[in-house]
Structures are given as C-alpha cells and as structure tokens.
Simulated scan of single mutants.
Amino acid sequence: MTTQKLMATAAALAVVTAPVSAGQAHVRTLSPTISVMSWNVCAGTNPGCFFYGRSMREVAVKVGEYATTKPIKPDAIFLQEFCSGGTAVLESLLEQKTGRAWTVRSSILTVKDGSPKACAPDRQGRPRGDTAVTVAVADHAATFQAHGLTSPPWYVKRMALCAAIPARRVNVCGTHLSAGLAYDDREPGAPFRAKQVEELLAAAAKPGYRAVFGGDLNLAPPDSKQSTAAKRRILAPVYAAYAECDQNGSRDGRWTEKHLREDGSVSKRKLDYLFVPRGSVTRCHVTQNVTASDHKPIYVKANLG
C-alpha cells in the first residue's frame, strides 16, 4: 500500500461526524436503547456467493432492505466481506431509506505483503474496492478507530473497526476473525483467533463507554457440540463478561451460516454474534430464508439505561 493511501485511510477513520440537528440529536440521546445489526454479506472474493461480481449498489440495496423491514431497526450496522468501493453508496442509500443521517466507514484488509485484498471486479470489469469490515452509525457524531488484530502472517490481516458515540456513551465495534480453514488459523487450539478475541475485547472496552460489539467470529459458542473444546473455550470469557444476542442459539438448533464442505455436504453453524452489557438484551432476531449470502443477518436490541 502506498504512503498516500495509508494516510488517506487513516484520515478517513479518524473523522468525527456531525448529528443531523441539535434537536434531533437531543431526542436520540435521551433514548436508553440501542439496536444493532450484523451481516456477513459475502460480496468480496468468493465466486460461490450471490453478490460476487455484483455492483455495490445491489449490495447496499439489500443491506438497506434488511435495515428497514425486520422487527429490529438498527442504529448501528456491522458488515463483513463488504467492498470499500460501496461505502459512500451505502451511506447515501441508508439515509434515503431510513430518513436518518448515517456515517459509514470501512477498514480494508491487507494481504501478507501489506497491499489491500482487492474485491473481485463487477461483471463489467469495474473495480469495487477492497475487502473490508464496515461499520455504519445513525444520527450521532462518532469517532472511528481501526484496530489491527494478530493474524497469520501468511494470510490477511484481520481488523476490528470501532465507532465511539459520545452522545450515547457507547463504543460499537464490528469485526471478522480468521476463518479457521486450511489457509487461515487451522492450527490446534486456534491460537490466532484466541488472540483476536482478546484484542477485540480490549478494543471494545473504551473507558467511560459501554461496549457493543460483534460480527463474524468464525468460532462456535461455548455450548456448541460442533467444535473442539479448546476452540469453544475461546469465547467463554466473552460470554462471562457480556450478554450475547442469541445466547442459546446453538443449543436450540439455530444457526447463522451455511457451509459447503469439500465433500459436498452442508453444515449449518452459529458463527455470528452480537454482544452487549449483561442484563441489557430486550430483543434478538435472526433473519430466515436468506439467499443473498451464506450468512444470516442478526440483530439485537438493548436497553443501556
């Protein structure tokens, strides 16, 4: 990555945004609730995904649909496998669909030589930007900060992207952890994902702010039977300190991702999470019948008052 691009990326992630108006911001500030949506859109480099090669406007339209038509209407959105070229169009489309002011930022992933991991071009051969984790915040001013996570040096550098929202005293963080496949942290005990979870917890725990965080963690819950005991233990400290949106999802047979194995069989796993302060969850939702991605959008509504 060039020095100029690094500086531009850093500048973009350090922007403080302005609220719509003093009156509207005041009303939003008084609400003790916050709602968050997370979705791995699978848009970047996987040719088996619906959004592969499709325009980022098509991706943004679907994100906007899920942000406005489900039982929980998010105040913040975490996206994984998004393409940075769609950041501006997503911001504009969310504003059109919701009538709220949104700020959207993306933190790109880099490969082992430090260059961005480019998304596949669209069907007309036009670039769509780089593979990214993306965070969108409605209504309030926010300061965005990207946190690099310890990652296998032979594959992509994983990131967490946080947005501190002073009006709410909330720090929201979205991430996409290592995949756990042959090319990315398949070592016994998942040492890189274990370290990434520790670093995510540290990034989310901003002094004076309450933490709301999650994304595609590529790990099974502690109560799951679909993983080794060592891997299940990785998330145990997170469950001990925070409430998870779909706390019993794995045990009750719910899942968030459908994986096609090398032998052609299909596994259904819970890999997507939203964590909030303990005792604050008031509602959780997992969208069903999703065909645009191999992951389902998940939602949480929390009362932080």
Score class of each variant (00 low, 15 high):
residue 14 A to V: 00
residue 17 T to R: 06
residue 17 T to D: 09
residue 19 P to A: 00
residue 20 V to T: 14
residue 27 V to P: 07
residue 32 P to G: 14
residue 32 P to M: 03
residue 41 V to P: 10
residue 45 T to C: 05
residue 46 N to Y: 13
residue 56 M to S: 04
residue 56 M to G: 12
residue 59 V to I: 14
residue 63 V to M: 08
residue 73 K to W: 03
residue 80 Q to M: 05
residue 81 E to S: 06
residue 90 L to H: 07
residue 91 E to W: 00
residue 95 E to Y: 00
residue 97 K to P: 00
residue 100 R to P: 09
residue 103 T to P: 08
residue 105 R to E: 08
residue 106 S to Y: 05
residue 112 K to A: 07
residue 113 D to N: 15
residue 116 P to R: 08
residue 118 A to D: 12
residue 120 A to G: 01
residue 121 P to F: 07
residue 122 D to C: 05
residue 124 Q to R: 12
residue 128 R to S: 03
residue 128 R to W: 05
residue 128 R to Y: 06
residue 129 G to S: 06
residue 131 T to Y: 08
residue 138 A to D: 03
residue 143 T to I: 02
residue 145 Q to T: 15
residue 152 P to E: 02
residue 153 P to G: 11
residue 154 W to E: 12
residue 158 R to K: 15
residue 159 M to R: 15
residue 161 L to F: 04
residue 162 C to W: 01
residue 167 A to T: 07
residue 175 T to C: 04
residue 178 S to K: 01
residue 178 S to C: 12
residue 181 L to G: 08
residue 186 R to V: 03
residue 189 G to S: 06
residue 190 A to M: 07
residue 197 V to K: 06
residue 197 V to L: 04
residue 199 E to A: 04
residue 200 L to F: 03
residue 204 A to S: 14
residue 205 A to D: 15
residue 210 R to M: 13
residue 214 G to P: 11
residue 217 L to S: 01
residue 220 A to D: 11
residue 229 A to M: 09
residue 231 K to T: 13
residue 232 R to W: 01
residue 232 R to H: 01
residue 237 P to A: 06
residue 238 V to G: 00
residue 243 A to V: 04
residue 244 E to P: 11
residue 248 N to F: 14
residue 249 G to M: 09
residue 252 D to C: 02
residue 259 H to N: 11
residue 260 L to Y: 11
residue 265 S to A: 12
residue 268 K to N: 11
residue 269 R to L: 15
residue 274 L to N: 03
residue 284 C to A: 14
residue 288 Q to D: 14
residue 289 N to Y: 10
residue 292 A to F: 13
residue 300 V to E: 08
residue 301 K to R: 15
